[in-house]
Amino acid sequence: MKVIKQLSAHATQDGDGVNISRIPGFDGKHLDPFLMIDELKSDNKNDYIGGFPAHPHRGMETFTYIIKGGFEHRDQMGNKKAIKAGDVQWMSTGKGVMHSEMPLADANEGLHGFQIWINMPSAEKMRAPIYQDTTAHPAPVATNDNGVTLKALAGTWQFADQALTSSLQTLAANAALADVTLPAGQRFELPPLSQQKVMLYIHTGSLTTQAGNVIAAKQLLILEPGSDIDLYTEQGAGVLILAGDELQQPIAHMGPFVMTTEAEIQQAIRDYQNGEFGNI
């Protein structure tokens, strides 16, 4: 496995004062086709109780994965869903979505989850929005003889002599995501994936390199194209695998809008101000 870049998540806030750890990629340099990786991990309700009140999106996809706790999602398309531990939610916002994500009232034992933004090809940014989640079709999971587990969050994965096919199959840029859990002293290996961009985000525990260096949580490892995946942990680890094909297109970004040109951003603002995104 060859790592060509390592990035650290930094503390910030979003929504109504929600404390998160973020790796941004709106400059298009390192994460393409991904735009942002946000992790929310806290046992203190004050860090997330404000949630994410109603707000718009255009031109990108939101991918939400909950490990612990949960949120209630609402949008102008009429979707109202409790997204709980183990659930995945995907919105291809296209020309416009208005939604909110608020902590579940009974989520009293902390919250750990992700919202990951994926860019959309320029030609698709103004198509109709799509909503999908895994509440009715849970993400498939396989565990090998050493207790290493892979949960297929999106796309299709081969692990432990099984094909794991998520119900989420049509993400932009051929994106696929998986969550890998390694017990202490175990190794996880995968041959090279088909996607051009493959990244590893350590969300729990730590990894140990062949040289004996420890890579702690909140680190993102970007692999050389065509690299295999070879992870080892001495203490135990949880790692997200993010894969996708680079779009290599200009990025114009302002708040919840991600388009290709500044003119398109200004149009998104006018459309929002004119009420074209609808109401929840």
Rank of each mutant, 00 (worst) to 15 (best):
P250W: 10
N279W: 04
N146Q: 15
V97Y: 01
E224S: 14
Y201F: 15
S227P: 08
K80T: 13
L247E: 09
D106H: 08
D75A: 09
Q195I: 14
Q235M: 07
D38C: 04
G59L: 10
P140E: 07
T156L: 07
M102W: 01
N174D: 13
T62H: 05
V18F: 01
H253Y: 09
T156H: 07
K218H: 13
F34S: 11
G205M: 07
F188E: 06
T12R: 02
I67E: 14
A216M: 02
S167M: 09
N79V: 07
A85G: 10
A105K: 14
L164Q: 07
A216F: 01
A184T: 02
D245A: 13
W90K: 00
V141L: 07
G255M: 03
G147K: 08
S167W: 04
K68D: 13
N19V: 11
A172Y: 06
A128C: 00
A172C: 05
W117L: 11
S194K: 15
T64N: 09
E264D: 14
P250R: 05
A105M: 08
T165F: 00
N144E: 04
K41T: 03
M102G: 00
D230W: 03
K81N: 06
Q235A: 14
G244H: 01
P250Q: 05
A178G: 11
T208I: 10
A216T: 14
Y48W: 12
L150T: 00
M36I: 13
A123G: 00
L231V: 07
Q158P: 00
G238S: 08
L104T: 08
L220Q: 04
H55F: 02
E61W: 04
L231N: 04
L31E: 09
A154W: 05
K80W: 05
L200F: 13
L240G: 08
G59P: 11
F257E: 02
G50P: 00
M199Q: 15
D179K: 00
E109I: 02
H10P: 00
Y131W: 12
Q162Y: 01
T260C: 00
N279S: 14
G226M: 12
N44H: 13
W90H: 09
E224I: 07
E101R: 11
L221A: 03
A178M: 07
D16T: 04
S100E: 12
A142Y: 03
F63Q: 07
G110Y: 04
A211I: 01
T135D: 05
Q115C: 09
F114C: 06
A107V: 09
I215T: 08
G275P: 08
L193D: 04
K125D: 09
T170N: 15
H10M: 03
Q210L: 04
D133K: 11
Q13S: 11
Q195F: 08
P56L: 03
D271M: 09
A176H: 10
F277Q: 09
A184N: 03
D38F: 05
D133R: 11
A154M: 06
K218P: 00
A136M: 14
